[in-house]
């Protein structure tokens, strides 16, 4: 057991030595891994932030019901009573046309224009909040309300959120494609780096193979090398994401204030750090394993 552990220690030490021997060349490999991890991870974080904003809107599903211009108090009362009785309506608010006009008049620059009108052009309005955010439930409620007497139109206000959600899904697919492409690039980088390492150690591999080294023994330092590269790549990717988040948060601060929305990206969570590490190390290990196995098979065939 002690001997086995020692062999692992030696293999790890050799992998470190390989990295230290050509730091600049290996730094490029580490940076490729870091970019391959941080670009899709950063894109996914932005998409998730946008999705959470959209989800917030979807969870507050508003409908706006506009009455016809000629709707009288009785028609308004009838709609009120219907809304009060419906179990799929969580709450509603009535805005009379006079109230809406007063609000508009309060807006700078509009008062004179409104005063010039000979009649109130605004309809009586109900803002309705559905109990369910499900698109089908919203559509059912919209259709039911649209059928009431003296109702001009019912508008689902979360439509923009639905569109955002569709965009988010599309962006997620794009990020998935980007992730796959960069994963291939990362695998190729690790594969060729490890292959170079194996080929440059060819005579040592042949000799150790002849005098009793198992394939596992021969593979070990190269796998550790791949793991180290992946680990360093993951760390650099985390650093890039942290710097990217800071830059983005500074840039988006004025927008957040303007729209009174939290557009800021949170710092990397422990789960995200672990995911980055697992992705970087796991993928590098797999690429190294494939590379060293294929190259060793070729060398063994010529031994």
């Amino acid at each position: 057991m002690l001997g086995w552990l020692l062999q692992h220690r030696i293999a790890l030490f050799r992998a470190f030595s390989q990295l230290a021997r050509q730091p600049v060349a290996h730094l490029i490999g580490v940076l490729v891994i870091a970019f391959a991890l941080s670009l899709p991870a950063g894109a996914l974080r932005l998409i998730d932030r946008a999705a959470s904003l959209g989800q917030g809107a979807l969870h507050e599903p508003h409908l706006t019901l506009f009455m016809k211009q000629d709707a009288d108090d009785a028609a308004v009362r009838a709609v009120w009573d219907t809304l009060a009785l419906r179990t799929d309506v969580r709450e509603f608010r009535y805005i009379s046309n006079a109230e809406a006009l007063a609000e508009m008049k309060a807006l700078p620059g509009l008062a004179d224009a409104i005063n010039a009108l000979d009649r109130n052009p605004l309809p009586h309005t109900f803002v309705v909040i559905s109990r369910s955010p499900a698109p089908q439930a919203l559509e059912n409620l919209r259709a039911a309300l649209a059928g009431l007497g003296k109702v001009e139109r019912v508008q689902v206000d979360s439509a923009w959120a639905k569109r955002l959600d569709a965009l988010v899904q599309f962006a997620r697919r794009g990020a998935g494609g980007l992730t796959a492409l960069l994963a291939v690039a990362m695998a190729f980088t690790v594969f060729s780096t490890v292959r170079q390492q194996v080929l440059s150690s060819r005579s040592e591999i042949e000799i150790t193979h002849l005098i009793g080294a198992t394939p596992g023994y021969i593979r070990r330092p190269f796998l550790y090398f791949g793991i180290l590269q992946g680990l360093l790549g993951s760390l650099v990717a985390g650093l890039l994401l942290w710097l990217g988040s800071r830059w983005y948060n500074d840039a988006v601060q004025p927008l957040s204030n303007l729209f009174a929305m939290n557009l800021q990206l949170p710092g990397l969570s422990l789960r995200e750090w672990v995911l980055l590490g697992v992705a970087g190390v796991g993928w590098s290990w797999a690429s190294s394993y494939l590379s060293v196995s294929l190259t060793l098979r070729r060398i063994a065939a010529r031994c």
């Binding site: 005579s203 040592e204 000799i207 002849l210 005098i211 009793g212 198992t214 394939p215």
Partner: peptide, 20 residues
Amino acid sequence: SALARLRRNIGLVFQDHLLL
């Protein structure tokens, strides 16, 4: 792997030395 472990019990000398 078992064959490799078996080779550890055999001393091999090569004409071309095969030294590092």
